[in-house]
Simulated scan of single mutants.
Amino acid sequence: MKDRTLLTTGIVGSVIAAICCFTPALVILLPFVGLAAWLAFADYVLFPLLFLFLGITAYALLLRHRHKKAAC
């Protein structure tokens, strides 16, 4: 996987997970589609996803840094 694709995936996933974790987006949207019962378990899924995507972003930045350092 290219560094740019990995970095984009990490950043987009982190932003989406952060929006769902730290704003009432899920509290507003899920009852409208009939999934309000899932709100009790949202934190058990969203926080690990946020940390996973932040880890992917950090890994992609590390790879990018190594490639730039090797090119010099």
Rank of each mutant, 00 (worst) to 15 (best):
residue 66 R to H: 08
residue 5 T to G: 03
residue 2 K to Q: 10
residue 51 F to G: 07
residue 57 T to N: 03
residue 52 L to P: 03
residue 46 L to S: 02
residue 43 D to I: 08
residue 62 L to A: 11
residue 8 T to H: 04
residue 15 V to R: 14
residue 41 F to M: 10
residue 18 A to W: 07
residue 60 A to K: 00
residue 46 L to I: 12
residue 41 F to P: 00
residue 8 T to I: 07
residue 31 P to N: 02
residue 16 I to P: 02
residue 58 A to W: 11
residue 48 P to I: 07
residue 66 R to L: 13
residue 36 A to Q: 14
residue 49 L to T: 02
residue 50 L to I: 02
residue 2 K to I: 02
residue 69 K to A: 15
residue 18 A to K: 07
residue 15 V to D: 12
residue 53 F to C: 00
residue 6 L to E: 02
residue 63 L to N: 12
residue 14 S to V: 05
residue 46 L to T: 04
residue 10 G to P: 01
residue 69 K to L: 14
residue 24 P to C: 09
residue 47 F to H: 01
residue 39 L to H: 04
residue 10 G to E: 05
residue 6 L to N: 01
residue 58 A to V: 11
residue 65 H to Y: 15
residue 11 I to Q: 07
residue 47 F to P: 00
residue 20 C to D: 12
residue 45 V to Y: 13
residue 16 I to A: 06
residue 49 L to C: 03
residue 58 A to C: 10
residue 49 L to S: 02
residue 1 M to S: 08
residue 37 A to V: 11
residue 32 F to G: 08
residue 61 L to W: 03
residue 69 K to I: 10
residue 21 C to A: 14
residue 44 Y to W: 11
residue 55 G to V: 08
residue 70 A to R: 14
residue 65 H to K: 09
residue 34 G to A: 00
residue 6 L to R: 04
residue 38 W to Q: 10
residue 9 T to S: 07
residue 57 T to I: 01
residue 56 I to A: 06
residue 66 R to S: 06
residue 48 P to W: 12
residue 36 A to S: 14
residue 25 A to R: 15
residue 45 V to T: 08
residue 51 F to V: 11
residue 60 A to R: 04
residue 42 A to I: 14
residue 25 A to H: 09
residue 66 R to W: 02
residue 9 T to I: 09
residue 12 V to K: 00
residue 37 A to L: 09
residue 41 F to W: 09
residue 33 V to F: 04
residue 55 G to F: 07
residue 3 D to Q: 09
residue 64 R to Y: 01
residue 55 G to M: 07
residue 36 A to D: 11
residue 61 L to D: 02
residue 52 L to A: 06
residue 59 Y to W: 08
residue 55 G to R: 13
residue 20 C to F: 15
residue 3 D to K: 08
residue 26 L to P: 00
residue 44 Y to F: 14
residue 68 K to M: 09
residue 37 A to G: 05
residue 45 V to W: 11
residue 52 L to V: 07
residue 72 C to L: 15
residue 1 M to H: 09
residue 51 F to E: 02
residue 55 G to D: 10
residue 40 A to E: 12
residue 25 A to N: 10
residue 29 L to K: 05
residue 12 V to I: 15
residue 31 P to S: 04
residue 69 K to V: 11
residue 23 T to L: 06
residue 64 R to T: 03
residue 49 L to H: 01
residue 57 T to P: 03
residue 29 L to G: 00
residue 71 A to K: 05
residue 66 R to P: 02
residue 1 M to V: 05
residue 8 T to W: 03
residue 22 F to D: 10
residue 38 W to H: 13
residue 66 R to V: 06
residue 28 I to V: 15
residue 23 T to G: 03
residue 60 A to I: 02
residue 72 C to V: 15
residue 12 V to E: 04
residue 52 L to R: 05
residue 42 A to H: 12
residue 13 G to E: 04
residue 35 L to S: 04
residue 61 L to Y: 04
residue 62 L to R: 10
residue 50 L to V: 02
residue 68 K to N: 13
residue 11 I to K: 06
residue 33 V to P: 00
residue 15 V to M: 14
residue 62 L to D: 07
residue 11 I to M: 09
residue 54 L to P: 01
residue 47 F to W: 14
residue 44 Y to P: 03
residue 57 T to R: 04
residue 21 C to V: 15
residue 2 K to T: 14
residue 55 G to Q: 08
residue 9 T to F: 13
residue 34 G to T: 03
residue 72 C to M: 14
residue 54 L to W: 06
residue 21 C to S: 13
residue 38 W to R: 13
residue 18 A to R: 05
residue 66 R to F: 05
residue 61 L to V: 05
residue 20 C to N: 09
residue 21 C to F: 13
residue 35 L to F: 15
residue 21 C to H: 10
residue 5 T to L: 05
